[in-house]
Write a protein that binds this DNA or RNA. Structure first.
Length: 960
RNA sequence: GGGCCUUUAGCUCAGGUGGUCAGAGCGCACGGCUGAUAACCGUGAGGUCUGUGGUUCGAAUCCACAAAGGCCCA
């Protein structure tokens, strides 16, 4: 059995953590902790796969801290915890990085470069920073199995995704549609609504032209309908005008001309006008107008006024310009009116040749020319730039345009009610996300725009027959005659053809799928389900727990839910913890341009990972922003951890000094009030922490633990100090109690601050046999005893501490320092136990505490400030002791090292010293304590109260 | 335009179901302890709990409206 050894204090947290990491590696602590739960009930966690083509940020540390603490907690509770890592590998972000490195920027250039090589670079790029991710994961103590991490580009993974798409296709929920979607002309692909939901996609105060245009009526000279738009480039594609049948319109005259607009929008007119007549929108229907341009051919029904329910009088003129292909409402209206829709703009965002005057111009560039042309032809009524919110491509920053094109969709709207129901069954932390952010999103659900006209992604497994248009969705490699493990990415997959029943050769559609579908498929695709691991997946779904940042609400959380609902009619997870954003000290978003990005490695090197973790758990409630800086972390969490460390260092020092060792006395109940009190506080804390953690509330649990640690240091230890230096039984009892408390605190904190907790636990429990691994992470989590009434001593101690506070304030007011003993204190209105009175007497440094009886709502305390000569001498002796101790330290003596003391002092002080001689000698380890008339050179001159004193200390060899 | 969140001492934040809930930490001032000491502890000053109405015997706490900030959507 090895004894307890003193430790360094204060502790260097970052260095300690590096040591602990080494220990975990050597001992295989992570693996052992996994083995420990092998027989336990499963606890399923899904890791939201990051893309490793960029460096991790502090917000990743945040999410990982919350993941890790609940996994560690469940593991300590004996559950078998699944901790498989994963990497998201496909998608536009990856392509964009490669494009940058190749200094190219268009699909044509990629095609020229060669898709095979391009995708090969993508595959390499996506693991470029994987080492940094692994390093960070390890450094923050997030136990994750990265060796078996799934990757979304693996053939097995893709095959599972294909299988799922086939299921969806068979149910008729995977279809091709001509729809308007946000479209990035640079990436030349449309974006899904959850890509638009990425932070930063919408940008405020985007300038755009705001033009009000005359549409001249065919049958009424000098009369125009006024329409307003912020996208002049859509005007060449105009097919119709829309009005609200129930809206009130007016016809006004201005000079020679007549203008029609909504009555509520008269404010847009410039200059004098006269209202000539009022009319309902109904009366405008069917009016024919002259097209602004002649690029589009005439067709029945085109260039007329149509009724629409989306027309509002909030802005514009109440008459809406409708370009079939460049607005969702526009497209639907034109299709309902049976109009043929033709594009005026190509996939590259430039005008097609049929738009003769602007052909080849990018749409946004063309705006001023179009405005000028309208002005020249006197069709422009007014042009006034506006600022509004506008969407941009979340990866390449190009302004998006709304553009109709053929895309593949998943009919998520078909399962909307099931999604809402499953969402309601999920325990969200914080709770408001369920019906707020997520609920609202689901209420306004749209079909999922799944396809991407890009290169690096899971190929859409649909083969179409060019002759009979038959369409086949493939659900496995085998269906294609491919052997397992074949690379099925573009361009290889596009070579694979199928024989159609009609005899023609079916070819795959060119698109890949939204990479968000990949990550949403991880519950089954990570296991290559259903080709392998059927039982495993079925047992592991839905997950018990996931956690990601709030930006994933409409990202990964949604895709998980949507796919699980469509494929298995199940929610994908039962509990989800959603931390908010990490922002800088001033509360601003972190951005490279602002230069306020906090580097996670730098932060952790400065403060320690545990401090950062603890800070995340305790600084604010989940759901609020984290205003982070190294200084803030150190000042709160770092200080707290140091306090805990010092408390345990104190125990180690005195246990070592007394030769006390843990073991043997476990389970015995101590008798001293302070011991019983701190153990009751421990019990109370466990009873708070465990239910909180069961409810995924790390915040409350950590706060309760923090109060316990503070109670231990600032009250238990403060009042027990002398007992650690007293008689053997006293030392044993207090060491044993503090040992129990701190060992339990280490267990309680293990899920949150895994490094410090393990170091402290192992310092306190060095282990029975050499080589046998001892780690707090292999211990069970403390559990509350059966609920009972709150022990009375907790209330008594609360009262006692409040009374002590009052008494200290009284001393402060009278300027009587604590070291001056007083005769007594009187507590009125409460009966304290003799033990409690003793504790209070020691805290207040008074001879005795009286409780003359009686009960009061608010008990009070009084102090007897009368100083007797005896008390004064007592105070002098105490002051002398303090000076002696300081001197010992200055001379570099260690505790227990014996000395001989000689002093010269006046009679009054000498009397005080001789009166307390025995006590002084014991406290200061003085073999002798002699008064001299004169001292040789080298004596120290001190002052005790008003009395000068010279002292000489001599070493007496080493302590026994 | 809509949804959600936030607004409590100089700063960062706690304050289930309305009645010692006006708090903590940091900072500041003063002090104590003096073998946890490049540590620890205490005392004190500081807030009409964003504003305005309302419900109530009683509201930081519930309701309505407003303002400011943040996130998200349109």
């Amino acid at each position: 059995m090895s004894g307890l050894k003193p430790v360094q204090s204060p502790v260097d947290l970052p260095a300690l953590e590096e040591d602990v990491l080494g220990f975990w590696d050597r001992e295989g602590t992570f693996q052992r902790s996994q083995e420990r739960g092998r027989e336990g009930e499963r606890f399923v966690f899904y890791e939201g796969p990051p893309t490793a083509n960029g460096l991790p940020g502090v917000h990743h540390v945040l999410a990982r801290a919350f993941k890790d603490c609940f996994l560690r907690y469940q593991q300590m509770r004996g559950r078998r915890v699944e901790r498989r890592g994963g990497w998201d590998t496909h998608g536009l972000p990856v392509e964009l990085e490669v494009e940058r490195s190749l200094r190219i920027g268009s699909k044509q250039e990629i095609e020229q470069f060669g898709v095979e090589e391009f995708n090969r670079l993508c595959r390499a790029s996506v693991v470029e920073y994987i080492d940094d991710w692994e390093r960070l994961t390890r450094r923050i103590g997030f136990w994750l199995d990265l060796k078996t991490a799934y990757r979304t580009y693996d053939s097995e993974y893709i095959e599972s995704v294909w299988w799922s798409l086939k299921q969806i296709h068979e149910r008729g929920w995977l279809f091709r549609g001509f729809r308007v979607a946000p479209y990035c002309p640079r990436c030349q692909t449309s974006l899904s609504s959850h890509e638009l939901a990425q932070p930063g996609a919408y940008r405020d105060d985007t300038p755009d032209p705001g033009v009000t245009v005359r549409f001249r009526l065919r049958d009424r000279p000098r009369t125009s309908l006024l329409a307003w738009t912020t996208t002049p480039w859509t005007l060449p594609g105009n097919l119709a005008l829309a009005v609200g049948p129930e809206i009130d319109y007016v016809e006004v005259s201005q000079g020679e001309e007549r203008l029609i607009l909504a009555r509520a929008r008269l404010g847009v007119l410039v200059g004098e006008y006269r209202v000539e007549r009022e009319l309902r929108g109904q009366e405008l229907l069917g009016l024919r107008y002259q097209p602004l341009f002649d690029y589009l051919p005439e067709q029945p029904g085109a260039f007329t006024v149509l009724p629409a329910d989306f027309v509002s009088t909030e802005e514009g003129t109440g008459i809406v310009h409708t370009a079939g292909a460049y607005g969702e409402d526009d497209l639907r209206l034109c299709q309902e009116a049976g109009l043929q829709i033709r594009h005026t703009v190509g996939l590259d965002g430039r005008f097609l040749p049929l738009v003769r005057d602007f052909a080849g111009l990018a749409v946004k560039e063309a705006d001023p020319y179009i405005i000028a042309e309208l002005e020249r032809r006197q069709l422009l009524y007014r042009s006034q730039p506006i600022l509004h919110t506008y969407p941009f491509c979340w990866r390449c920053d190009t302004p998006l345009i709304y553009y109709a094109l053929d895309s593949w969709f998943i009919r998520t709207t078909a399962v909307k009610e099931r999604l809402l129901g499953h969402n309601r069954s999920v325990h969200w932390v914080p709770a408001h996300i369920r019906d707020g952010r997520m609920g609202n999103w689901l209420e306004s659900l749209q079909d999922w725009n799944l396809s991407r006209a890009r290169y690096w992604g899971t190929p859409l497994p649909i083969w179409v027959c060019p002759s009979c248009q038959r369409e086949r969705c493939v659900g496995s490699l085998e269906e294609l005659g491919l052997s397992p493990g074949t690379d099925v990415h573009k361009p290889f997959i596009d070579e694979v053809t199928l024989m159609c029943d009609c005899g023609a050769e079916m070819r795959r559609v060119p698109e890949v799928i939204d990479c968000w579908y990949d990550s949403g498929a991880m519950p089954f695709a990570q296991w290559h389900y259903p080709f392998e691991n059927r039982g495993r997946f079925e047992a592991d779904h839905p997950a018990d727990f996931i956690s990601e940042g709030v930006d994933q609400t409409r990202g990964w959380f949604y895709t998980l839910l949507a796919e699980s609902t469509m494929l298995f009619d199940l929610p994908a997870f039962r509990n989800v913890v959603v931390p908010s954003l990490v922002v800088d000290e001033q509360g601003r978003k972190m951005s490279k341009s602002r230069g306020n990005v906090v580097d996670p490695f730098e932060l952790i090197t400065a403060t320690g990972a545990d401090a950062v973790r603890w800070w995340f758990y305790t600084t604010v409630s989940v759901g609020l922003e984290y205003r982070i800086s190294a200084q803030r972390v150190t000042e709160t969490a770092g200080r707290f951890l140091n306090l805990l460390w010092n408390t345990h260092a104190f125990l180690l020092r005195y246990a070592a000094l007394a030769g006390w060792e843990p073991g043997g006395e476990e389970g015995t109940a101590p008798s001293h009030l302070l011991d019983r009190w701190i153990l009751a506080r421990l019990e109370e804390t466990v009873a708070e922490a465990v239910p909180a953690l069961d409810a995924y509330d790390a915040n409350s649990a950590c706060r309760a633990i923090a109060v316990l640690v503070e109670d231990t240091s600032t009250w238990y230890l403060r009042r027990s100090r002398e007992r650690f230096k007293g008689a053997a039984e006293e030392v044993a009892e207090s060491c044993s109690t503090l040992h129990r408390v701190l060992s339990s605190v280490a267990c309680l904190m293990a899920p949150f601050t895994p490094f410090v907790a393990d170091a402290i636990f192992r310092n306190l429990n060095p282990g029975a046999a050499p080589g046998e691994p001892v780690s707090v992470h292999l211990r069970p989590y403390p559990l509350p005893a059966a609920a009972g009434p709150r022990p009375a001593l907790l209330a008594e101690m609360e009262l006692l501490r409040r009374l002590a506070e009052e008494a200290r304030a009284l001393r402060e007011q009278r300027r009587v320092p604590l070291r001056q003993p007083l005769g007594g204190a009187t507590v009125r209105g409460a009966q304290l136990s003799p033990e409690a009175r003793q504790v209070l007497a020691e805290e207040l440094n008074v001879g005795r505490v009286l409780c003359p009886g009686g009960e009061a709502e608010r008990p009070t305390v009084e102090l007897d400030f009368e100083l007797t000569p005896e008390l004064i001498r007592d105070g002098l002796a105490r002051s002398f002791a303090r000076q002696l101790q300081a001197l010992r330290r200055r001379l570099g003596l260690v505790p227990g090292e014996p000395v001989a003391v000689e002093y010269r002092a006046d009679d009054e002080l000498a009397e005080a010293i001789s009166e307390h001689r025995a006590q002084l000698q014991e406290q200061c380890f003085a073999r002798s304590l002699e008064r001299r008339a004169a001292l040789p050179e080298g004596a120290e001159t001190l002052a005790v109260g008003d009395h000068p004193i010279s002292v000489r200390l001599q070493r007496q060899g080493r302590p026994a």
